[in-house]
């Protein structure tokens, strides 16, 4: 048995883990630490526009100076400035309302998809997913076409005599909601569809057999069993909508100022990097609960399969 040379396969499996691990630590984890650090710094007019900078050549004293100069001033500002508070609240409001609307209109569509004849299902699902693959900018832009003052929506409403003069749609809350609901529609429908499609149809037959009329079966059997899908869809929509930037920027007005825009303005407009970083940290803290919840579900779902 001389051909049985004794090697182990740890080298290749170490590479499998190490390459993506290192990449994510460097480009996903480390940046957050830097954001955290800058959120504790002061804004300056220099390049880069924040202080203190970590001076490693100054040795121990440099390190001490560095930590001594860090402060929570930016966070204090966040809580005292009404603008910040308002944009956080607006973000959460928009995210909550949009998620509710999405659930309300997404559920019937997902349900119909799941009940569709098998050979149509693949094509119908593809049709729902297709717009998601096009650029979200295109999706927003398509709505600008329709919502503008002399756009199709006003034309149609005028033609139908529902309104007698053009209404302003753009730069309103409605426009933001329409844009968000439109863009996140597949994110709600697909997880719902996935749980509804897996559901054993004999459960519905059993409920009917035991005397439940269809609407009761729906609320007593279908909805409770699709709760995992509802949770997944809601998280998948709520989290990114809270940080949404493009929709309120292109479709909204100053009244729909969300945290994404405030952060953007602080960073690019006012060049106040520490304030922008503090805004990001607080946003992350707000979303930490939902994000962790989502991750746990995702990890568990993948492990179970």
């Amino acid at each position: 048995m001389g051909d049985m040379s004794k090697t182990t396969n740890t080298r290749s499996s170490r590479l499998i883990v190490l390459a993506p691990y290192a990449w994510l630590v460097l480009f996903f984890l480390a940046p957050f630490l830097i954001v955290l650090k800058i959120s504790l710094s002061q804004s300056t007019l220099m390049q880069p526009p924040y202080a203190p900078l970590l001076a490693l050549d100054a040795g121990w004293q440099g390190l001490k100076d560095f930590f001594g100069a860090l402060s929570l001033d930016n966070y204090a500002a966040l809580f005292t400035d009404a603008l910040y508070r308002r944009s956080y609240l607006k973000s959460l409001e928009v995210a909550a309302v949009s998620t509710a609307i999405l659930l309300f209109i997404g559920y019937p569509v997902a349900y119909a998809l799941a009940r569709a004849p098998r050979r149509w299902q693949a094509i119908l699902v593809l049709l729902v997913v297709l717009p998601f693959w096009t650029s979200f900018l295109i999706r927003v832009y398509a709505w600008i076409n329709i919502l503008q003052r002399d756009g199709l929506l006003n034309d149609a409403l005028l033609a139908l005599h529902i309104i007698d003069r053009p209404t302003t749609w753009l730069a309103t809350d409605s426009a933001v909601y329409i844009g968000i609901v439109y863009s996140y529609f597949p994110f709600m429908v697909l997880p719902l569809y996935a749980t509804l499609e897996r559901m054993d149809e004999s459960l519905l037959e059993a409920a009917a057999d035991l005397g439940a009329p269809p609407w009761k079966t729906f609320f007593l059997v279908t909805v409770p069993l699709s709760l995992p899908g509802i949770a997944a869809g809601a998280l998948l929509c709520f989290i990114p909508i809270t940080g949404e930037f493009v929709m309120p920027d292109l479709l909204g007005s100053s009244a729909t100022l969300m945290i994404g825009q405030t952060l953007w303005t602080e960073f690019f407009g006012n060049r106040d990097w520490p304030a922008a970083a503090a805004l990001a940290v607080v946003l992350l803290v707000i979303l930490a609960g939902p994000i962790l919840l989502y991750q746990r579900r995702e990890a568990r779902a993948l492990e179970r399969r």
Partner: peptide
């Protein structure tokens, strides 16, 4: 042991 030889450290793809 296989044929008197310890198999420790021999990966599956080298075992007869």
């Amino acid at each position: 042991l296989l044929g008197g030889e310890d198999l420790a450290g021999v990966p599956p793809y080298r075992r007869p």
